[in-house]
Design a protein around this nucleic acid. Structure first.
Length: 569
RNA sequence: GCUGUCGUAGCUCAGUGGUAGAGCAGUGGUUUUGUAAACCAUUGGCCGUCAGUUCAAAUCUGACCGACAGCUCCA
């Protein structure tokens, strides 16, 4: 980025930030001069501000009008530096408890960060001599790191628009009060705004929920919220994904198993899930102390299979894969099309290995990941994250450190973009998470490679080593697609429904030019199917035998995004 | 779960207190020889559900169900 561009970028940030103060002033004038304020940072495409007050989107027009008025008034922005104690006193007097809390944090910790990862919470840095900066936009005087424009008149020409309202917990903590957040879009000029809105509209056209309905791939019904129904076309795709997956994994020494969908609660007590996660499980209470849970993950049953007989070191790595259906009672507000569901299947595998095998086995899994994401042309969209030891970890630090080091080295080796999610590992081991982005740019975790030192211990798993001693295996939990549902959602948006022929729900659609040649079209269909079959491929070929004009058949085939359309006659 | 928005025919949507509409799809006919929507007729709705206000509710109010955007969560 050139300096010039950098400068204008910074400028836009400053102006967005100033607009945010203008919005607060507008709200104070219109609704409540004493409204309690949370944080209000600049974000991509605009800014937001948290208020301890209810709003509705119907308030937007009034606020926007008032903001325009304030800009027109050309109010001078004043900056002063005061001591932290003075600032605390200032806000205490006004009852601005959130500001007081932030200031007290600055005073004691020198920053408003909640922890090392979060940066967005910073509203003000500690300045020299223990002073903080206060900016006044007319009657609105607020703690702020700045910088700002010199007067609101400088914002003339900015294009802004209040976008939406959302609840947001104070400091991002569910235990705190939920404040009301107003998100706003802001750009230097009308054209930029229009370009952004246009792009957002375009992105909506790729939405897998929309395309899934139009192309009849899947559906939902309120009888089971968050549980997709796979329709014939979607199921054909899903089967194709699984066929490829099974072929590739069989080649690489994976053995597929399937286990019960419901298990007695004892199983989850042993695995450790019952205490922590039973609220997210579907429970089947059969009375008489017979309580079952629908499995939310496959690992406990994989442990049962490994432990079902004495194992030898010669069996390792033992790769037990399965694609059983899982159920998790996700919070209702979390459900989102295929991206976040309550019923799904993972392309799961539990690889039982010795501690010495960790690096090689993870490298092998990463090569599978490389193959799979490459096949779909997704490699540029992928980002890998190393998630390290959380505070509430189990096991011994030495194993953790060694494993984290090895995973980190493997990430360096790989040609994927990668990053770090500090302290984000599972309680039982570190992991590498694979993220893909959707049409709106949101990142979703798809694949994951997790090391597990803990569950083999909980299930008292062991194998007989070369020297006859008993050793505990390490388990790698790994998925490549992630959940098939989520991956399908990503694929639909990535290709905007125009899939590569091999996964497309219908690969060839044959259009007879008129009703007289329908039988001929069916012959062609048979020929294609037979010739594909001879090559060991199951082709998906349809004949459009409706009594329609050719034009309308062509149009319909195009709308269904069928890769190959044959017109015969 | 929380905040906001939304829910009318299979789909996309109009309809702001006074007899439920359009286009497409579907159905029946007539068409259909060449690359992005043939023509005519016609079926179809307890306006998400349940309560309430009113002479009168798709329309106003409340609760619930569901969807979306965000927050939190994601073993």
């Amino acid at each position: 980025m050139s300096n010039e561009k950098n400068k204008s970028q910074n400028n836009l940030e400053i102006r967005r930030h100033s607009l945010e103060h203008v919005m607060v002033l507008a709200v104070r004038r219109l609704f409540d001069d004493k409204v309690l304020l949370g944080v209000g940072p600049v974000i991509e495409n605009g800014f937001y501000q948290d208020f301890d007050r209810q709003f509705s989107e119907s308030d937007f027009v009034r606020i926007e009008e008032e903001m325009k008025k304030i800009i027109k008034e050309d109010i001078k922005v004043e900056l002063e530096y005061i001591s932290i104690d003075e600032a605390i006193e200032f806000f205490e007097e006004k009852g601005q408890k959130y500001k007081v809390e932030l200031l007290k944090d600055i005073k004691s910790k020198g920053s408003t960060k909640m922890n090392q990862e979060s940066e967005s919470e910073v509203v003000s840095g500690l300045l020299n001599e223990g002073k903080v900066s206060m900016y006044s936009f007319g009657a609105h005087k607020d703690l702020c790191r700045g910088p700002h424009v010199d007067s609101t008149g400088e914002l003339v020409g900015m294009s802004f628009k209040l976008d939406r309202i959302a609840g947001a917990y104070w400091r991002g903590d569910e235990k705190n009060k939920m404040l009301t957040r107003i998100y706003a879009l802001a750009f230097e000029a009308e054209d930029d705004m229009e370009l952004f809105l246009e792009r957002r509209e375009q992105a909506k056209l790729r939405d897998h929920k929309k395309l899934g309905k139009e192309m009849e791939l899947f559906m939902f019904h309120e009888t089971s919220p968050g549980a997709p129904y796979w329709l014939p076309r979607g199921m054909a795709m899903l089967n194709e994904l699984m066929r490829y997956w099974r072929d590739e994994h069989a080649k690489r020494g994976y053995d597929e198993v399937s286990s019960p969908l419901i298990n007695k609660s004892d199983l989850y007590k042993t695995s450790g899930h019952w205490d922590h996660y039973k609220d997210s499980m579907f429970i089947a209470d059969m009375g008489e102390n017979e309580v079952y849970g629908l499995k939310p993950m496959n690992c406990p049953n994989a442990m049962i299979i490994f432990g079902s007989r004495l194992r030898s070191y010669k069996e390792l790595p033992l790769r037990l894969s399965d694609v059983d259906r899982l159920h998790r009672y996700e919070q209702s507000g979390e459900l989102n099309g295929l991206f976040r569901v309550r019923a799904f299947a993972q392309d799961d595998s539990h690889n039982f290995i010795s501690e010495e095998m960790i690096k090689d086995e993870v490298r092998e899994v990463l090569s599978i990941v490389d193959d799979f994401y490459g096949v779909f042309g997704l490699k540029d969209n992928v980002k890998l994250y190393l998630a390290t030891r959380p505070d509430d970890f189990m096991g011994d630090v030495k194993s953790w450190d060694k494993a984290e080091k090895e995973l980190s080295e493997l990430l360096e080796e790989s040609d994927f973009k990668h990053g770090l999610k500090d302290k984000d590992g599972a309680f039982y081991g570190p992991k590498i998470d694979i993220y893909l982005s959707d049409s709106l740019g949101r990142e979703w975790q798809c694949g994951t490679i997790q090391l597990d030192f803990q569950q083999p211990k909980n299930f008292k798993l062991e194998y007989v080593d070369k020297d006859g001693s008993r050793r505990q295996p390490v388990v790698i939990h790994r998925v490549v697609y992630g959940s098939l549902e989520r991956f399908m959602g990503i694929l639909i948006e990535h290709f905007a429904g125009s899939f590569p022929a091999w996964v497309a729900p219908v690969q060839v659609r044959i259009l007879p030019i008129n009703d007289d040649v329908v039988n001929y079209a069916k012959d062609v269909q048979t020929q294609i199917l037979n010739s594909a079959f001879a090559q060991g491929i199951t082709a998906r070929v349809e004949v459009d035998d409706r009594s329609e004009t050719l034009q309308s058949k062509i149009r319909d085939a195009a709308e269904l995004k069928v890769p190959y359309t044959l017109i015969v006659g």
